[in-house]
Amino acid sequence: MESNLFEADSDIVEGCILGNPRMQKALYEKFSPKMYGVCLRYAGNEDDAKDILQDSFIKIFKNISRFKAIGSFEGWIRRIVVNTAIEHFRKKNNLTAFNEITEEKKEDEAANGLDKLEAKELMAIIQSLPNGYRTVFNLYAIEGYTHKEIGEILNINEGTSKSQYARAKIWLQEKIKDHRYGE
């Protein structure tokens, strides 16, 4: 899924370490669309996503000399972006208030129209999640972190991560149902 450090990436990394603006732009152009997708998933709106993307790339360029070509370069970049998104919401104290969410009614019907959902539509639905739910959902369902790891990252209990993920699922289910009926 993630690309290894190809020769082209190696040139870009070396150029960026030397502060070559052309290579910095090459790196940005190569990875920014995918990383902006990550930012949009974690952010509730485009302004926040843009801020996260900027902060992430500034960190990437400042710390690129620390990258060791053992693992995936894209994975290294993604981790910085995800961590920056989490920091962003920590600063805003948006990783609390999970208990304020109203409990949703059980939806008996299966979401049969899901396969018709486009990625962008699904992205929009994920963006509509409350901040805390969205973060846990992204980390668990999409990035593949365990609840234990999420608990360590967000400084919450493992059980809290699980319950928030369950609630995120309910929220998504409702939103997808609304989306389907809204068509």
């Binding site: 995918k34 902006y36 998933r41 979401a111 486009e118």
Partner: peptide, 24 residues
């Protein structure tokens, strides 16, 4: 229900992990 959601998330058309959106 959740199985359907997960399938949808992981289909090639809607692979949110690798979704690319041009930044501003």
């Amino acid at each position: 229900v959740w199985d359907n959601i997960e399938k949808n998330i992981q289909t090639s058309d809607a692979l949110l992990y690798n979704i690319e959106i041009p930044p501003p």
